[in-house]
Amino acid sequence: MEQAIQTIRGFNRFFTRHVGAIDARFLDMDVNLPEARLLFEIAMREPVMASGLQDALDLDRGYLSRMVARFEDRGWIRRDRVEGDARARPIRLTSSGRAAFEMLDERQRSAVAADLARLDPVERDDLVQALAKARLLLDPDAGADFRIRTFRTGDVSHIAARQSILYAASHSWGHGLELVEAETVAAFLRNFKPGREQCWIAEIEGVTAGAVFLTDEGRGTARLRLLHVEPFARRRGIGDALVRHCIGFARENGYAEIMLWTHTVLDAARRIYARHGFERIATEVHHAFGEPVQGETWRLDLTANP
Protein backbone atom coordinates (compact mmCIF):
# COMPACT_ATOMS: atom_id res chain seq x y z
CA MET A 1 0.00 0.00 0.00
CA GLU A 2 2.77 2.47 0.88
CA GLN A 3 4.47 1.91 -2.47
CA ALA A 4 1.16 2.35 -4.30
CA ILE A 5 0.50 5.62 -2.46
CA GLN A 6 3.96 6.94 -3.31
CA THR A 7 3.59 5.96 -6.97
CA ILE A 8 0.24 7.71 -7.35
CA ARG A 9 1.43 10.83 -5.53
CA GLY A 10 4.52 10.89 -7.72
CA PHE A 11 2.41 10.70 -10.85
CA ASN A 12 0.12 13.45 -9.57
CA ARG A 13 3.11 15.75 -9.01
CA PHE A 14 4.44 14.99 -12.48
CA PHE A 15 1.11 15.46 -14.21
CA THR A 16 0.13 18.73 -12.54
CA ARG A 17 3.48 20.12 -13.65
CA HIS A 18 3.22 18.55 -17.10
CA VAL A 19 -0.18 20.07 -17.93
CA GLY A 20 0.47 23.39 -16.20
CA ALA A 21 -2.20 22.87 -13.54
CA ILE A 22 -0.48 25.26 -11.11
CA ASP A 23 0.49 27.89 -13.69
CA ALA A 24 -1.00 31.35 -13.12
CA ARG A 25 -1.40 31.63 -16.90
CA PHE A 26 -2.64 28.28 -18.19
CA LEU A 27 -1.31 27.67 -21.73
CA ASP A 28 -0.10 31.29 -21.72
CA MET A 29 -3.65 32.66 -21.52
CA ASP A 30 -5.23 34.97 -19.01
CA VAL A 31 -6.81 32.10 -17.03
CA ASN A 32 -5.68 29.48 -14.54
CA LEU A 33 -6.71 25.84 -14.87
CA PRO A 34 -9.94 26.08 -12.80
CA GLU A 35 -11.02 29.05 -14.90
CA ALA A 36 -10.17 27.17 -18.11
CA ARG A 37 -12.31 24.26 -16.93
CA LEU A 38 -15.19 26.61 -16.07
CA LEU A 39 -14.98 28.22 -19.51
CA PHE A 40 -15.12 24.77 -21.10
CA GLU A 41 -18.20 23.75 -19.09
CA ILE A 42 -20.04 26.94 -20.00
CA ALA A 43 -19.23 26.41 -23.68
CA MET A 44 -20.45 22.81 -23.58
CA ARG A 45 -23.60 23.44 -21.53
CA GLU A 46 -24.82 26.95 -22.39
CA PRO A 47 -27.28 28.24 -21.44
CA VAL A 48 -26.46 26.91 -17.99
CA MET A 49 -27.33 27.93 -14.46
CA ALA A 50 -24.61 28.57 -11.90
CA SER A 51 -26.01 25.68 -9.84
CA GLY A 52 -25.45 23.36 -12.81
CA LEU A 53 -21.85 24.47 -13.09
CA GLN A 54 -21.36 23.99 -9.37
CA ASP A 55 -22.67 20.41 -9.61
CA ALA A 56 -20.54 19.65 -12.68
CA LEU A 57 -17.32 20.99 -11.17
CA ASP A 58 -18.00 20.26 -7.48
CA LEU A 59 -16.70 23.73 -6.58
CA ASP A 60 -17.28 25.87 -3.54
CA ARG A 61 -20.16 28.25 -4.30
CA GLY A 62 -18.21 31.35 -3.30
CA TYR A 63 -15.19 30.36 -5.40
CA LEU A 64 -17.44 29.70 -8.41
CA SER A 65 -19.20 33.06 -7.95
CA ARG A 66 -15.89 34.91 -7.97
CA MET A 67 -14.79 33.18 -11.20
CA VAL A 68 -18.13 33.93 -12.86
CA ALA A 69 -17.77 37.58 -11.80
CA ARG A 70 -14.28 37.74 -13.36
CA PHE A 71 -15.68 36.34 -16.61
CA GLU A 72 -18.38 39.04 -16.57
CA ASP A 73 -15.77 41.73 -15.98
CA ARG A 74 -13.81 40.47 -19.01
CA GLY A 75 -16.95 40.49 -21.14
CA TRP A 76 -16.76 36.72 -21.75
CA ILE A 77 -20.25 35.86 -20.50
CA ARG A 78 -23.68 37.35 -20.17
CA ARG A 79 -26.39 36.35 -17.74
CA ASP A 80 -29.87 36.29 -19.24
CA ARG A 81 -33.12 36.84 -17.42
CA VAL A 82 -36.00 34.39 -17.44
CA GLU A 83 -39.46 35.89 -17.58
CA GLY A 84 -41.38 35.08 -14.44
CA ASP A 85 -38.34 34.00 -12.40
CA ALA A 86 -36.09 36.84 -11.27
CA ARG A 87 -33.65 34.43 -9.63
CA ALA A 88 -32.97 32.42 -12.78
CA ARG A 89 -29.92 33.86 -14.60
CA PRO A 90 -28.69 31.36 -17.22
CA ILE A 91 -25.12 31.95 -18.36
CA ARG A 92 -24.01 32.17 -21.99
CA LEU A 93 -20.73 33.01 -23.71
CA THR A 94 -20.45 36.31 -25.54
CA SER A 95 -18.66 36.48 -28.88
CA SER A 96 -15.42 37.41 -27.09
CA GLY A 97 -15.96 34.59 -24.61
CA ARG A 98 -16.48 32.16 -27.48
CA ALA A 99 -13.27 33.39 -29.10
CA ALA A 100 -11.36 32.93 -25.82
CA PHE A 101 -12.75 29.42 -25.45
CA GLU A 102 -11.87 28.44 -29.02
CA MET A 103 -8.31 29.71 -28.61
CA LEU A 104 -7.94 27.85 -25.31
CA ASP A 105 -9.44 24.68 -26.75
CA GLU A 106 -7.10 24.75 -29.75
CA ARG A 107 -4.06 25.24 -27.50
CA GLN A 108 -5.11 22.29 -25.34
CA ARG A 109 -5.63 20.08 -28.39
CA SER A 110 -2.24 21.11 -29.75
CA ALA A 111 -0.53 20.35 -26.44
CA VAL A 112 -2.08 16.88 -26.29
CA ALA A 113 -1.28 16.23 -29.95
CA ALA A 114 2.35 17.16 -29.30
CA ASP A 115 2.53 14.60 -26.50
CA LEU A 116 0.99 11.89 -28.68
CA ALA A 117 3.20 12.72 -31.67
CA ARG A 118 6.27 11.64 -29.71
CA LEU A 119 4.86 8.12 -29.34
CA ASP A 120 4.63 5.32 -31.88
CA PRO A 121 1.16 3.80 -32.50
CA VAL A 122 1.56 1.00 -29.93
CA GLU A 123 2.80 3.41 -27.26
CA ARG A 124 -0.04 5.80 -28.06
CA ASP A 125 -2.63 3.03 -27.63
CA ASP A 126 -0.94 1.96 -24.39
CA LEU A 127 -1.16 5.50 -23.01
CA VAL A 128 -4.78 6.04 -24.03
CA GLN A 129 -5.88 2.69 -22.58
CA ALA A 130 -3.90 3.23 -19.37
CA LEU A 131 -5.49 6.63 -18.79
CA ALA A 132 -8.98 5.35 -19.61
CA LYS A 133 -8.53 2.39 -17.28
CA ALA A 134 -7.22 4.63 -14.49
CA ARG A 135 -10.37 6.74 -14.73
CA LEU A 136 -12.63 3.68 -14.77
CA LEU A 137 -10.86 2.17 -11.77
CA LEU A 138 -11.19 5.36 -9.74
CA ASP A 139 -14.75 6.04 -10.92
CA PRO A 140 -16.49 2.76 -11.91
CA ASP A 141 -19.63 4.65 -12.97
CA ALA A 142 -17.68 6.67 -15.54
CA GLY A 143 -17.25 5.73 -19.16
CA ALA A 144 -19.47 5.09 -22.10
CA ASP A 145 -21.49 1.93 -22.64
CA PHE A 146 -19.53 -1.19 -23.45
CA ARG A 147 -19.23 -2.62 -26.95
CA ILE A 148 -18.43 -6.18 -27.99
CA ARG A 149 -16.04 -7.09 -30.80
CA THR A 150 -14.28 -10.22 -32.03
CA PHE A 151 -10.69 -10.96 -31.04
CA ARG A 152 -7.54 -9.45 -32.52
CA THR A 153 -3.88 -10.43 -32.37
CA GLY A 154 -2.73 -10.57 -28.76
CA ASP A 155 -6.20 -10.67 -27.22
CA VAL A 156 -6.45 -14.33 -26.33
CA SER A 157 -3.05 -14.49 -24.60
CA HIS A 158 -3.93 -11.35 -22.67
CA ILE A 159 -7.23 -12.93 -21.56
CA ALA A 160 -5.49 -16.04 -20.24
CA ALA A 161 -2.94 -13.95 -18.34
CA ARG A 162 -5.57 -11.61 -16.95
CA GLN A 163 -7.83 -14.41 -15.73
CA SER A 164 -4.87 -16.13 -14.08
CA ILE A 165 -4.11 -12.94 -12.16
CA LEU A 166 -7.74 -12.35 -11.14
CA TYR A 167 -8.36 -15.92 -9.93
CA ALA A 168 -5.04 -16.02 -8.09
CA ALA A 169 -6.16 -12.91 -6.19
CA SER A 170 -9.75 -13.99 -5.55
CA HIS A 171 -9.43 -17.77 -5.03
CA SER A 172 -5.67 -18.49 -4.73
CA TRP A 173 -5.77 -20.58 -7.92
CA GLY A 174 -2.19 -20.44 -9.08
CA HIS A 175 -0.12 -22.13 -11.77
CA GLY A 176 -2.56 -25.02 -12.17
CA LEU A 177 -5.27 -22.70 -13.48
CA GLU A 178 -2.74 -20.73 -15.49
CA LEU A 179 -1.64 -23.92 -17.23
CA VAL A 180 -5.25 -24.88 -18.06
CA GLU A 181 -5.93 -21.42 -19.49
CA ALA A 182 -2.68 -21.27 -21.46
CA GLU A 183 -3.40 -24.65 -23.03
CA THR A 184 -6.99 -23.63 -23.79
CA VAL A 185 -6.08 -20.44 -25.65
CA ALA A 186 -3.15 -22.07 -27.43
CA ALA A 187 -5.47 -24.80 -28.74
CA PHE A 188 -8.02 -22.16 -29.74
CA LEU A 189 -5.47 -20.31 -31.86
CA ARG A 190 -3.86 -23.45 -33.28
CA ASN A 191 -7.15 -25.08 -34.31
CA PHE A 192 -9.37 -22.05 -34.87
CA LYS A 193 -12.35 -22.79 -37.13
CA PRO A 194 -13.75 -19.60 -38.67
CA GLY A 195 -17.53 -19.63 -38.72
CA ARG A 196 -17.62 -22.35 -36.06
CA GLU A 197 -15.66 -20.77 -33.22
CA GLN A 198 -15.17 -17.29 -31.87
CA CYS A 199 -13.79 -15.13 -29.07
CA TRP A 200 -15.59 -11.95 -28.09
CA ILE A 201 -14.08 -9.01 -26.20
CA ALA A 202 -16.15 -6.46 -24.27
CA GLU A 203 -14.59 -3.00 -24.23
CA ILE A 204 -15.26 0.30 -22.48
CA GLU A 205 -13.47 3.19 -24.17
CA GLY A 206 -10.96 0.75 -25.68
CA VAL A 207 -10.22 -0.96 -22.34
CA THR A 208 -10.86 -4.70 -22.10
CA ALA A 209 -13.80 -5.21 -19.74
CA GLY A 210 -14.47 -8.92 -20.24
CA ALA A 211 -14.30 -11.80 -22.69
CA VAL A 212 -15.62 -15.24 -23.59
CA PHE A 213 -14.77 -18.06 -26.03
CA LEU A 214 -16.96 -20.52 -27.91
CA THR A 215 -15.28 -23.63 -29.37
CA ASP A 216 -16.42 -26.53 -31.52
CA GLU A 217 -16.46 -29.82 -29.58
CA GLY A 218 -17.78 -31.89 -32.51
CA ARG A 219 -21.03 -33.80 -32.97
CA GLY A 220 -23.13 -30.64 -32.74
CA THR A 221 -21.72 -29.53 -29.39
CA ALA A 222 -20.20 -26.11 -28.68
CA ARG A 223 -18.33 -25.23 -25.50
CA LEU A 224 -18.45 -21.89 -23.72
CA ARG A 225 -15.05 -21.13 -22.19
CA LEU A 226 -13.20 -18.59 -20.07
CA LEU A 227 -16.03 -16.14 -19.40
CA HIS A 228 -14.85 -13.26 -17.27
CA VAL A 229 -15.71 -9.64 -16.50
CA GLU A 230 -13.17 -7.22 -15.07
CA PRO A 231 -13.95 -6.05 -11.52
CA PHE A 232 -14.23 -2.39 -12.54
CA ALA A 233 -16.79 -3.28 -15.25
CA ARG A 234 -19.20 -5.42 -13.26
CA ARG A 235 -22.90 -4.65 -12.79
CA ARG A 236 -23.15 -3.36 -16.37
CA GLY A 237 -24.65 -6.50 -17.91
CA ILE A 238 -21.43 -7.45 -19.70
CA GLY A 239 -21.46 -11.09 -18.61
CA ASP A 240 -25.03 -11.55 -19.84
CA ALA A 241 -24.20 -9.86 -23.15
CA LEU A 242 -21.19 -12.11 -23.74
CA VAL A 243 -23.20 -15.24 -23.02
CA ARG A 244 -25.95 -14.04 -25.38
CA HIS A 245 -23.33 -13.67 -28.13
CA CYS A 246 -22.26 -17.26 -27.58
CA ILE A 247 -25.82 -18.58 -27.66
CA GLY A 248 -26.78 -16.57 -30.74
CA PHE A 249 -23.65 -17.65 -32.60
CA ALA A 250 -24.22 -21.31 -31.68
CA ARG A 251 -27.85 -21.20 -32.87
CA GLU A 252 -26.93 -19.48 -36.14
CA ASN A 253 -24.30 -22.12 -36.87
CA GLY A 254 -26.47 -25.16 -36.18
CA TYR A 255 -25.17 -26.39 -32.85
CA ALA A 256 -27.50 -28.63 -30.87
CA GLU A 257 -26.12 -27.81 -27.42
CA ILE A 258 -23.59 -25.71 -25.50
CA MET A 259 -21.57 -27.22 -22.68
CA LEU A 260 -19.47 -25.42 -20.08
CA TRP A 261 -17.37 -26.16 -17.03
CA THR A 262 -17.46 -23.88 -14.02
CA HIS A 263 -17.01 -24.06 -10.24
CA THR A 264 -19.46 -24.00 -7.39
CA VAL A 265 -17.71 -21.03 -5.76
CA LEU A 266 -18.25 -18.82 -8.83
CA ASP A 267 -21.73 -17.68 -7.85
CA ALA A 268 -21.99 -14.69 -10.20
CA ALA A 269 -21.09 -16.75 -13.27
CA ARG A 270 -23.47 -19.54 -12.26
CA ARG A 271 -26.33 -17.04 -11.94
CA ILE A 272 -25.63 -15.79 -15.47
CA TYR A 273 -25.69 -19.31 -16.87
CA ALA A 274 -28.92 -20.13 -15.09
CA ARG A 275 -30.59 -16.96 -16.41
CA HIS A 276 -29.83 -18.06 -19.95
CA GLY A 277 -31.27 -21.55 -19.55
CA PHE A 278 -28.16 -23.60 -18.77
CA GLU A 279 -28.69 -26.49 -16.38
CA ARG A 280 -26.14 -28.16 -14.13
CA ILE A 281 -25.81 -31.83 -15.07
CA ALA A 282 -22.75 -33.00 -13.11
CA THR A 283 -20.58 -32.06 -10.13
CA GLU A 284 -17.13 -33.41 -9.36
CA VAL A 285 -14.23 -32.44 -7.08
CA HIS A 286 -10.88 -32.04 -8.84
CA HIS A 287 -7.30 -31.06 -7.87
CA ALA A 288 -6.16 -29.41 -11.11
CA PHE A 289 -5.58 -26.08 -9.36
CA GLY A 290 -3.52 -27.57 -6.53
CA GLU A 291 -6.29 -27.87 -3.97
CA PRO A 292 -9.70 -29.61 -3.87
CA VAL A 293 -12.22 -27.58 -5.88
CA GLN A 294 -15.76 -28.55 -6.81
CA GLY A 295 -16.26 -28.26 -10.55
CA GLU A 296 -19.60 -28.32 -12.32
CA THR A 297 -20.69 -29.23 -15.85
CA TRP A 298 -23.60 -27.23 -17.28
CA ARG A 299 -25.58 -27.75 -20.50
CA LEU A 300 -27.89 -25.66 -22.68
CA ASP A 301 -30.19 -27.54 -25.09
CA LEU A 302 -30.45 -25.52 -28.30
CA THR A 303 -32.97 -27.84 -29.91
CA ALA A 304 -35.69 -26.67 -27.55
CA ASN A 305 -37.63 -23.49 -28.28
CA PRO A 306 -35.43 -20.39 -27.76
Score class of each variant (00 low, 15 high):
E2H: 12
Q3R: 12
I8G: 01
I8T: 13
F15M: 13
R17M: 08
V19T: 12
A21F: 13
F26K: 03
L27S: 02
L27A: 06
E35N: 01
A36N: 00
L39A: 01
F40T: 10
M44L: 13
M44C: 09
M44Y: 07
M44I: 09
P47T: 02
S51D: 12
G52H: 08
L53V: 06
A56G: 05
D58E: 13
D60A: 13
L64S: 00
L64C: 00
R66A: 06
R66Q: 03
M67N: 02
V68A: 02
E72Y: 06
R74L: 10
I77E: 02
R81E: 15
V82P: 06
R89T: 15
I91A: 08
R92M: 07
R92E: 09
L93H: 07
T94G: 06
T94D: 12
G97Y: 04
G97W: 06
A99M: 11
F101C: 06
D105R: 15
E106M: 14
R107N: 15
R109Q: 14
A111Q: 10
A113V: 06
A114D: 14
D115M: 15
L116W: 08
L116N: 04
L116I: 10
A117T: 11
A117K: 11
R118C: 10
L119K: 04
D120Q: 07
D120R: 07
D125H: 04
D126Y: 07
D126L: 12
L127G: 05
L127M: 11
V128K: 11
A130Y: 05
L131E: 03
R135P: 01
L138R: 12
R147Q: 05
T150M: 03
T153I: 14
T153S: 14
G154C: 05
D155F: 08
V156P: 00
V156N: 02
V156D: 10
I159N: 10
A168I: 00
H171E: 13
G176A: 05
G176R: 04
L177S: 06
L179K: 12
V180Q: 15
A182I: 00
A182D: 09
T184V: 02
A186M: 03
A186S: 09
F188N: 01
F188C: 02
F192E: 09
F192W: 12
F192S: 01
K193N: 00
E205H: 07
E205G: 07
E205A: 14
T208P: 00
G210I: 04
A211G: 14
A211F: 07
V212D: 01
G218F: 03
G220E: 05
L226H: 03
L226Y: 03
A233M: 11
R234D: 10
G239I: 00
V243L: 09
C246K: 08
I247V: 13
G248N: 14
A250K: 04
N253Y: 10
G254Y: 05
G254E: 03
L260H: 02
L260K: 01
L266G: 00
D267K: 13
A269I: 10
A269T: 05
R270M: 11
Y273D: 02
A282P: 01
E284P: 00
V285Y: 01
H286N: 08
E291Y: 09
Q294N: 10
T297N: 07
W298M: 12
D301M: 07
D301E: 09
T303S: 14
A304N: 03
